[in-house]
């Protein structure tokens, strides 16, 4: 399934872009620490199935371990290694307002009341809104370095590619549709639409990322 593969690769690319940005500029300016914390929570709650050793494939397992490891490493870079470049005063989104509703939603909508399915469902809902602190920060500063926008664009591309992936799977497989993932995935992709528009019309034309006043 080419869409899913490209989606995963674009997700990988986003992480490498972020690491590259932090390492080369030796700064995490413009990156929301809260969004990065949420991604660690998302990966750790989603990939609990690693502990059961009922693994899907080598690819699947390696990617899961990579996503958990790289997201924790990014927190280390932001909080310890390049701490002085991280400005919490503009990263003011209240993540309690995301965590609470996602916890409630995961208790209502899930595929089974157990320690794998509820955290899995929680992680799906949380991922769909995890980018909000980052977008909120962008909104507050009104502009961003090109590399930061490439990072967000790669994340957006990853989400967008999962939609044709689901259509493809719906047409070719008989397992039915993972409704929770699809609905949350569409919401998540929707959050990138505004950003994507400015990215395509400005950054890719060589202009600076600036929000209209």
């Amino acid at each position: 399934n080419i869409f899913r593969l490209l989606g995963d690769l674009s997700h990988l690319a986003s992480i490498f872009i972020l690491l590259h940005k932090i390492q080369t500029s030796r700064s995490c300016r413009g990156i929301s620490f809260k969004t990065q914390v949420l991604y660690v929570v998302v990966f750790c709650t989603r990939y609990l199935d690693l502990l059961t050793f009922q693994l899907h494939s080598f690819y699947n397992t390696i990617m899961k371990i990579f996503f958990i490891g790289s997201s924790v490493y990014i927190l280390y870079l932001m909080r310890i290694r390049f701490r002085p470049t991280n400005d919490p005063s503009i990263d003011t989104f209240r993540i309690e307002y995301l965590l609470g509703p996602c916890a409630v939603l995961s208790l209502i909508f899930n595929y089974g009341y157990n320690w794998i399915e509820i955290p899995w469902s929680f992680s799906i809902f949380l991922e769909s809104v995890a980018i909000l602190p980052q977008l909120f920060m962008l909104q507050r500063t009104g502009e961003a370095e090109a590399i930061t926008t490439h990072y967000i664009a790669a994340l957006g591309a990853y989400r967008a590619l999962y939609i044709p992936n689901w259509i493809y799977r719906y047409l070719t497989e008989t397992n039915g549709v993972d409704a929770i993932a699809v609905v949350a995935g569409i919401v998540q992709t929707g959050l990138y639409v505004d950003f994507g528009y400015i990215y395509f019309t400005k950054v890719l034309q060589g202009q600076k990322f600036e929000l209209p006043a």
């Binding site: 997700h11 699947n60 996503f67 039915g176």
Partner: peptide
């Protein structure tokens, strides 16, 4: 959605 398939997406 067939739960027996598990969550094979990342």
């Amino acid at each position: 959605f067939d739960e027996a398939q598990g969550h094979d997406e990342l």
